[in-house]
Amino acid sequence: MDFTFTEEQQAAAEAARGVFAGVAPDGVPSPALTQGRPVADDLDRALWARIAAADLLSLLLDEESGGAGLDAVALCLVLREAGKVLARVPLLETSAAAAAVQAYGGTELRSALLARAGRGEIALTVAANGRSGHDAAELAVTARQDGGRDTGGGGGDWVLDGVQTAVPWAYEADFVLVPAHTGDDRSVLAVVARGQEGTTLAEQISTSGERLGELRLESARIPARDVITADGAWEWLRALLATGTCALALGLGDRVLEMTSDYASKREQFGHPIASFQAVAVQTADRFIDLRAMEVTLWQAAWRIASGAPGALPASGDVAVAKIWASEGVRRIVQTAQHLHGGFGADVDYPLHRYHAWAKHLELSLGPAAAHEEALGDLLAAHPLG
C-alpha cells in the first residue's frame, strides 16, 4: 500500500508553508498578562485573507463551489502548518463545517454557504463541547420540528433549546453548526446565524487566552432549510474535527521540539552543550518518538475519513487512537520543553509560554486519553479482530 502524499496534497502543504511563513506567535500577548481578558478582540483578519487568497479555505469543496476537491489528508497537512505558528483563525472549523454542509446539506443551504466560505467572506464554527465539555454535544440541545410554522425549506421550522459551552470563535463566526437530538433519538445539525433570535452568548476565556462563547438557545427557531437531518452527518463532522485537532497538535509539537533541540544545542553547562548530556538526549528522543506516533496515527485516521475504506473497526477506532497519542503526546512534548529550557520555559516574553498554553487547550479539546482508550475498548469488544 502506498502511503505517500499526492502531488495535490503536497502542493496544499507547500502553499500553507508560504502563507504561514511570516506569522509570529510571540506577537500576541501572553494570556498570563491579559488579566482575564482575551489576548485579542478578533481573529487574525489579515492572515484569514491570505489563507482565503491561497485557496486554502476551499480545499475540501468541490469544483462547483470553487474548491479543489481534496480530502481530509490535505486539510490535515495544512492544519499541521497552522499549528506550528499558532494561527489565530478558524481554519479547521470553517473547513470542517463547510465539508459537512457539502456532504449532507440540502441544495439551498449549500448554495447559500459554500462558495462564500471558500472565499473567506464568512467564517463558520461548530459547537462540539456539549453543556459541560464532558458530555456528548448532541445531547446538550433538543430539537423539535414545528409543523405549524414554516419560514422556508418545507416541513416546518425547527425549535432548539439548550446550552453549548466553549464554542470556538463564537463571537467572530457568522454561523455556528449546532448538533442537537430529537425526540426519536436522532441527531441533527442546525446552522445557526450569529445574532439569531433566541440565542445569547456569554464570554469564556480558554487556557490559550482565546475568546470562546457559551451559546444558549431558548426556543431558537431555525428554518428547515438550515437544518441537516441526514443520518451520520454529526458523527462524520465530529470525527473530522477531532482529526484536525490532532493535526494542530502535531504541528505544535513539531515546532516545540525544534525549539527545544535548537536551545539544547546552544545552551552550555560545564563547557558543553546540554544536548550532549545523556539525560537530555534521552528525553528529546522520547519526545521524537511521541511525535512520530502522533503522526502515523493522524494519517491513518485522516485516510480512513477521506477514503471511507472498510476495516476491522469503524473509522472511529482510528480517530480514538489518534486522539490518545495527540492528547498525551502534546502534553509530554511541552512539559519536556519547559523542563529543558529551564527558566526560559517560564518566561512569558519567550514564545514557548504561548505554545504551552495552546497545547493545554488542545489537550483539553481532545479529551483525556483514558476516555478514548475506554471507547476503543468498547469498539474492540463489539468488533472482535480475531
Rank of each mutant, 00 (worst) to 15 (best):
L59S: 02
G66P: 06
W169R: 04
A103I: 04
G22C: 03
A100Q: 10
F270W: 14
A190E: 01
M1A: 13
G342M: 04
D184Q: 05
D62E: 14
A136L: 14
L70C: 08
D254K: 05
R186A: 05
G106R: 01
D378L: 14
E214L: 12
V191L: 11
W48D: 12
R238Q: 14
G152A: 09
S316E: 14
A54I: 03
Y104A: 10
A264C: 12
L124S: 00
E63I: 13
L237Q: 10
V89Y: 00
D290N: 11
D146M: 06
L379E: 09
G162D: 04
V227L: 00
Q102T: 11
P384L: 03
L160T: 15
E8N: 05
M259T: 06
G69Q: 08
G22M: 05
T125C: 00
V176H: 01
H372K: 13
G106H: 03
W325K: 09
I222M: 01
L385V: 14
D41L: 07
T199Q: 06
L59R: 01
G120V: 07
A87Q: 07
P31M: 02
M294G: 07
G342N: 06
I324N: 04
G156T: 03
L257Q: 11
A193N: 01
Q10G: 12
T260H: 09
R80H: 12
L340M: 15
P29K: 08
V319P: 01
A74F: 08
A49I: 10
Q196A: 09
P314Y: 06
E268V: 12
S132L: 08
W48E: 11
R144N: 08
A140D: 14
Q269P: 15
A72Q: 09
E258M: 10
A337G: 15
G106K: 03
H339G: 10
V23Q: 06
Y350T: 07
A170W: 05
I274G: 03
E363P: 04
E93G: 01
L298Q: 03
D135Q: 14
S111L: 11
P384V: 06
A127P: 02
L362C: 15
N129I: 05
W299C: 11
M1H: 15
D157I: 00
F20V: 00
P351V: 02
G152F: 12
A315M: 05
V39S: 02
N129F: 09
L380W: 14
L215P: 02
G209N: 08
F5E: 07
V28D: 11
S95F: 01
A52W: 00
Y104T: 07
L139W: 11
F175A: 01
D44R: 06
A381Y: 14
A242N: 09
S206L: 08
I305W: 09
A46T: 15
I324E: 04
F288R: 11
G148H: 02
V73H: 05
A87P: 03
Q9V: 08
D378H: 13
E63A: 15
T142W: 05
R304D: 03
R50I: 04
A97D: 04
A117T: 00
L33F: 06
E64I: 12
A322C: 00
S65D: 07
I228N: 04
E197T: 15
